[in-house]
Every structure is written in C-alpha cells, then in structure tokens.
Design a protein around this nucleic acid. Sequence first.
DNA 1: CTGAAAGCGCTTACAG
DNA 2: CTGAAAGCGCTTACAG
Lengths: 344, 344
Amino acid sequence: MEKSSVNNNQKVAKPANHRATSYDVARLAGVSQSAVSRCFKAGASVSAKTRAKVMKAADELGYQPNAIARGLITRRSNIVAVITTEFTNLNYPEMMSHLNAKLSEHGVHILLFTVGAASDMRAVLDQIWQYQVDGIIAASQFSDDQIAQCRKRGIPLVFYNRVFSDSSISSVGCDHFEGAKLLVEHLLSRGHKRFAVYSGPNDSAVAQERLQGAVTQLKQAGAHFDVYQGDYTYDSAAASTVEMMSSARELPQAVICANDIMAIGCIDTLRAKFGLRIPEDLSVVGFDGIAASKWQAYDLTTIVQPLERMVEATVSMLMERIEDSSIPAEKRQFGGKLNIGLSA
Amino acid sequence: MEKSSVNNNQKVAKPANHRATSYDVARLAGVSQSAVSRCFKAGASVSAKTRAKVMKAADELGYQPNAIARGLITRRSNIVAVITTEFTNLNYPEMMSHLNAKLSEHGVHILLFTVGAASDMRAVLDQIWQYQVDGIIAASQFSDDQIAQCRKRGIPLVFYNRVFSDSSISSVGCDHFEGAKLLVEHLLSRGHKRFAVYSGPNDSAVAQERLQGAVTQLKQAGAHFDVYQGDYTYDSAAASTVEMMSSARELPQAVICANDIMAIGCIDTLRAKFGLRIPEDLSVVGFDGIAASKWQAYDLTTIVQPLERMVEATVSMLMERIEDSSIPAEKRQFGGKLNIGLSA
DNA sequence: CTGAAAGCGCTTACAG
DNA sequence: CTGAAAGCGCTTACAG
C-alpha cells in the first residue's frame, strides 16, 4: 500500500517480475480488458485497429492468456488425463507422441498418470477430479465402481487396449482374438501340428482374448497343444521354455506367445540353452509388433497393432464425447496386420 | 433469474449434474465457505466439530476442491511440464513411472509434451506459458533464446540427460565421458588393440561426450581405431557394420557403440550377414542399460544409467527451485555402472 | 476458531 | 465494435 504513493493514478505498481495479465495489456493498448480478451478468442468481433493495438501491447509484455483462469470460467480445462501402467511395452514413446500430436490438433493437453499397484488408482482418480480434466484416456484397468464415478461426474472415458464386456463403455483396441487366429492359421498352413501356447497374465482380458483366439483355432484344426502360464515378461517365457523342454515328451513344432517380448524370451532360451535353431527346429510367433520384433536376431512373425490408427480413433472418440456427452458408448476394434518374419 | 422464484431462499437451483463447490458443501454443513476451504488445507485451524460436519457433507456431495481455481489464487498450479522427444529410447515407461511417483510425493502433476521437429518447440512453449506450470523438466534440446524465456518468466527449468556448457543451466545427467572411458578401459584390459567406434548423432551433445570419452581413452592407450557415423538407431549401426566389414583391411577386435540399440544392431548384423560370433570373433559394447541389453541374445557389456537416482535428483532439484527461485543453477552427474555381459 | 469480503485472471451476456 | 460488470471456485488477510 505504501508503494502506491509513488504512482497514484494507477491501482498498485505491479512487481517487475509479474506475469502480464489482460489488464496490463489493456492499459498499455489503451482499450478495455474485454477487448483484450476478445482478441485472444477465435471468431470474436474486434476491429482491425483495436486488434493491432492489443497485439502490439501483448507482444511487448509477453502476454499469453492464462489457461487456468480461462478454464475456470469456461469449465473446459482442455486437459485430458492419460493413465498408463509402468508395464506398457507397446512402443510407448511412439504412442505418446501420436497421442500428443492428435490431441494438440484439438488444443488439448495431456496430464499423465502412471499407475503401478491397483491401490494407486484411487489416489490417481482423486487427483483427476481435482484437476477438472475434460476427459480420460485409460490404458489401465478400472473397477466397475471407478467407471461409475466417471459417469456420475460426467467425464468421458475411453479405454485404450482394454477389454470390457459392458457395452456402455467406450474402448479402442486391436482384435486380439482374430489376430491370434490369424497366427495359428498361418502356422497350420505351414504344416505345423503340435503347438505350445504361452499365455499372458490371467488378470489381463487382452491376454485372455489372445489365448482364446489361439485355442479356438487350434481346437478347430484338431491340433495338439499345451498351454504354459506366463505374464507377458521375457523371464516368464524363458521359464516356460525350460519347463516345456524338460517335460514335453515330443517337442512342439511351434510356440505361440502372448506377446512379442515373450516370443523373444522364448527364442533366446531355445537358442542359448538348448541349441535349437529358429525357425528350422521350431517356429515361434508373437503379438504386438514392437520395434524389437523387427531386429534381425528375431524377425518375428507377429500381429502388428495399428498404433497410429488406434490412437487416432481414441482421440476422436474422446473428443466427440467431450463436445457432446449424450453420444452413446462405442467400441472400435482394429484388425492387426499379420507380419510374416523368419521366426516361423 | 426467473428460476429463483422456485426456491427463493437459495441463490439459484444448481443443475443436478453440477460438480459440488465449496459453497454447496458449506450450505449442507451449515458453515461458511471459508470454513470448508480451511478443512481442505493442511495445517489450517478448524475445530474438530466443524471439520466433522464439513467432511460428512463433502463426502455426501462427492466434493473435491477445484485445483484449477486454487491454482489461480495461489499462483501454484502444482503442474510441471515434462518435455520429451519421440526418440527417447531409455526405458521410457519406467522413467515416466519414477517421475510420476517422485513428483506425486510433492503433490505435483505432469503435463506431458512430446516434441518431434525443432519447430514444434515454439508451439509447445507457448502452451506451457499458458498453463502456468510451476516448472519444466526437459529431456529435449532448447535454444539459448528459449532458455532465456524461461528465466525471464521465472519458471525453473531442469534438463534431463542434456548437456549445456553454460553453468547457469541446471541439469541432471550421467557421466557419459567417464562411462565411455570405463568401457574402453575394460576392453583394453581384455587385450583388445584395434577398435571401431560407432558415433551417435552429431547434434547430440550426449553422443559427442560419449564419443570424446572413448576417443580420449583410445588415444591415450595408443590404440588404433576408426569412427563410423551413426544416429543412435539400429539401422544406422547395421549400415555402419556393413561399411566396416567391406572397407576395413583388418577387422577391429571391438566395436564401441554410442548406445545399446546400436550395439544390438551391430551384433545382429555381424551375426546374420557375416556369420561372426560375439564375443569370440569380435567384442561389442553399448551404453544405457536398456531392458533389451540383458536379453540372452545380446547380454551387453554396457554402462547402465542409474535411472531412478537421476529421476530423483531431477525432481528434487526442480522442487527446490520452485520453492525458492533464488537457488543458483546446479549440475549433477551420476556415474554409470559398468555392467559386464558376454558381448565383450 | 469462525465468517464476511476481496481478489486471482479470465469470459461473456448486456447495453450502448 | 466496445466497455462496464458479474461471476467461475477457490484462498487468505482481517476482524470478531
């Protein structure tokens, strides 16, 4: 207050370091604060003369509208929560990059959350409510109660590569069931008759779909197969391989893995521990199409998920529901592309 | 206004779906709005009785304080911008998970930006200013001008694994120079005398440090070596390997790669295209300690970056500077751990 | 410990 | 096209 005596025809001297506000710009440009606001709103009616004055002043002060204040009044934060798990192995940086690019087209930003244990989800959701996000993209599991909370709060939610039977839930995914069938068909066409199937974790619906797709097709063909429990990791596949090699009376001709990482673990173990050649002695196939699947050491036959298409669909589905919350749920499933490598 | 006649002892009937505000809670609990606010502020003085009433009401209404409104008045968004590039290959999901965990301890959230081309940076920074982030963690390159802008706006900035000679810039990194020297020392101790060095991209200061570390140590030992230009990618290493094998009069005994991905590309190519054995015919070493470096097919001798320590340091350095902007810049460099695998 | 009031930096009818 | 004014949902002196 004492400082105001220095320049008594202004409210109070702003500290030098203060971020410029629309009032500062208005004063410098000699217009009202509302005029400044309009200049930063697309499609608002402002005369060219006013706009020029305002833009000049804004530039001078390094003014940028405060998105936080804007969000408070428009009730649109232009922020979307993205929830992933630590164990997402599907070309994570690439996916994030696409996600960022697609959301940017809508002027939307990503508030990122990584959940480990299921117990974290509660805390994460609390944070999400507090930040008034416009929507949620979840690449993690939700409980029914958590989904209900989103609905009650009117926050659109789209799942990425998660499977829910409930038809009122929106999700984008790859057709894991069909993908697995495609792989099996391919192996059958190569004359394979005895199979091993390395499953993913039991609590992953995606892993179960892949398993069912493979099993269904194998049974239909009357092929012989054994299932080995895994959990998507390299080590689990290595362990299953040791178990398989020591217990099987007759070697399988092909191993169908729940994902690429497991296929890699299987191949490495077959080669290093048992001196087998891939694909001469045994075929191995994966699922996902991660970068390493193309490395010459593996050159996996696998199902490549159409990452960019899936991300694009996720974003457009979410944005539609942010614009109009009455749009009913939708499930979109993309067929994966069978990539025939040298591993089978 | 017409609607107020319906229930004239309240302001206006809130729409059913409206998110509860502190006023709603206050009304239901029969206290003032300030009292509600205090109940959600740690360390504020509220009687147990008032707190109980408020919490009960808040629970009933599903009330959570609006972090956006809070940020507006406290000038603390509790949001930090994290800028990465599409090509970060260093255990990205793991790093993000640690980052998220460490920042959560401070009640801080991540606004994620992925930059591709340098041209994107301008747009990204504009967005960052608008969102009033409390600080920036950058795993991407900044121009001098961009760094100056952060400083002018008083936004703390910490670089992650980027090298700047300017001592007024805070950064956390791995000691790439020493790491590369360690690798060379190890190879020399195994009796190697002729080397190939696969460099990373020229515009990466980190890659240059690794290169200089290796070259310095090789020169000091009087060893013979050739440098092949690469760009951190698998394909660039594969190409360099073909070039090396067709041009070198005498095969090198060891290949020093700028990162693990290149070491893998090199090994795959030596094996697949030239039928060589690793390490019997040739040693190959990498840098980073990515997950794939431990796969049996490679079992790389490499420098493992202490991811968690580095993330922890980044977060604590940033938080310190958010609390007190007068703290001078700091550079922290962690020694990498030499992991001796079977590739050398 | 508690409540009334001002204000954070915007947007948006409203009247001119 | 333009400006004065109200209000988004909070926090925080201030007075009691």
